[in-house]
Write a protein that binds this DNA or RNA. Structure first.
Length: 427
RNA sequence: GUGGCCGUAGCUCAACUGGUUAGAGCGUCUGGCUGUGGCCCAGAAGGCUGCGGGUUCAAGUCCCGUCGGUCACCCCA
């Protein structure tokens, strides 16, 4: 094969492409009801943006970004996630000055250079949202509700579970205290850590747990300290749980749920499909109250999430069979290439299409038999045949494809009206 | 980044322990039916067996490398 797509990148053909579109449409509809408006952000951003937001010591930034350098020597990357870009846009255009909360959603491709597997590609699509300016637990809950409504609308009701965790915040007695005790713990086992972990532990001890080699061993160590959230964070989280219960949303607590991005605070959540393979996290997100300020903006609480479109499609496909695509309404055939017949056929096709009917035909240069075979393959409901003999008498033939040998002579002048009437009766 | 499995026609797969000209089904096109689909029958087109090297008289088959796919670990959506 001369050319093939790049590793981990793939073509999405019909009908999968159409199924993805309908998922996007469902999401748009639900998010509109929740008051979110669409933002479109660039695919390319500066590397620095993600170093600052996602975190310099995270897996995503350390080894999963596609990087390039432009002619001016700028370090650019294909966006590995959406939140950083939305926050940048929020600050760049001073959206906070519009008053109230800012609720935005986006749909687009993200890029991560991971080893591909089921439900994991190097280019993948996310539907995500960000809500700025709501620090109350109700904000977390609204975001979770929006997410579950989108998935329910997509046909996944009852096919996913919700995991919750509380990561605490940056008050000294909260996550910083945990970080310090983690660092102290790592000092005690320093000799067993790999070189990379030793250099990383001082900068970001939480990320040492992500290490491919040392992480699993460390997590198995009973002496590993656990986070004890401060009082405010505990109260916040308790309210989140209470409000979810009030809405009858089932969830499970999972202390091991730590998002791989540094900006999360307090509530983090993950939606897992019950039948999709190893990559079962179909959506995830959480609160990030410190990020906007850390990126140079005003103190702004925020919460957001992202849905993995391909994974969600896998979950949907596992649950329901794809419905057969509807065939074309009308197939127009011409007996020969004679100019008059070709003109009639094309004219009728365009008239039908202008009305919104799906119409196909004009396989000129092929036998009538071949044209009707194509009509059959396309699932045409009606076929019109322009023949030489009928042409002389200003008529053509109308066939109901569902009926064998059906054939009706119709005046050319009346054929469009006749087609519309018949199609109307059929549906 | 690590590991397992797999790369033969558009698709799904054959080809005994290496051994003539790499086959079949489905699909496509054409014809049987000079102007009528689905079913049937016949014919045709379609392959540098992923790529590169090696072993051998001989490689689709064995070995090495590489690229790609796939699944898992890890991580994430």
């Amino acid at each position: 094969m001369a050319f093939q797509s790049v590793k981990g990148f793939k073509d999405i053909l019909p009908p999968e492409s159409e199924a993805m579109t309908s998922l996007e449409l469902a999401a748009r509809d639900v998010l509109r009801a929740f008051g979110y408006r669409e933002i479109r952000i660039p695919t390319l951003e500066t590397r620095e943006l993600f170093v600052k937001s996602v975190g310099e010591t995270t897996d995503i930034v350390e080894k999963e970004m596609f990087q390039l350098e432009d002619a001016g020597g700028r370090h650019l990357v294909l966006r590995p996630e959406g939140t950083a870009g939305v926050v940048r846009a929020y600050l760049e255009h001073s959206l906070s000055q519009q008053g109230g909360r800012t609720k935005l959603f986006y749909i687009g491709s993200m890029f991560r250079a991971e080893r591909p597997q089921k439900g994991r590609f190097r280019e993948f699509e996310q539907i995500g949202l960000e809500c700025f300016g709501n620090g109350h637990a109700a904000g977390d809950v609204e975001a979770i509700l929006a997410l579950s409504y989108v998935l329910d609308r997509a046909g996944l009701k009852g096919a996913y579970s919700i995991k919750l965790n509380n990561l605490g915040d940056e008050k000294p007695e909260c996550r910083p205290a945990y970080r310090a005790s983690l660092l102290a713990f790592f000092e005690t086992v320093k000799d067993e850590l790999c070189e990379h972990c030793r250099s990383r532990m001082a900068r970001n001890p939480l990320r040492v747990l992500d290490c491919k080699g040392d992480g699993p061993k460390l997590k198995a160590n009973p002496a590993l300290p656990t986070l004890v959230p401060c009082g405010d964070c505990r109260t916040h989280f308790d309210t989140v749980k209470a409000l979810l219960e009030n809405e009858s949303v089932a969830y499970e607590l999972d202390g091991s749920l730590v998002r791989g991005l540094d900006y999360y605070t307090r509530t983090v959540f993950e939606f897992r499909s019950t039948d999709v393979g190893a990559q079962d996290a179909i959506a995830g997100g959480g609160r990030y109250d410190g990020l906007v300020k850390a990126m140079g903006g005003p103190e702004t609480p925020a919460v957001g999430w992202a849905i993995g479109v391909e994974r969600t499609r896998l979950a949907i496909a596992a649950k329901a069979h794809a419905e057969a695509p509807r065939g074309v309404d009308v197939y127009v055939a011409a007996q020969s290439d004679a100019a008059g017949l070709v003109g009639l056929a094309m004219g009728l096709l365009q008239s039908l299409r202008r009305q919104g009917r799906s119409a196909e035909g004009a396989l000129f240069g092929h036998s009538l038999k071949a044209q009707l075979r194509e009509a059959d393959r396309l699932g045409a409901r009606l076929a019109v045949i322009f023949g030489q003999e009928e042409f002389a008498g200003r008529t053509c033939l109308l066939k109901d494809m569902r009926v064998k040998d059906s054939q009706e002579v119709v005046a050319i002048a009346d054929v469009l009206e006749k087609l519309n009437r018949t199609l109307g009766a059929m549906s």
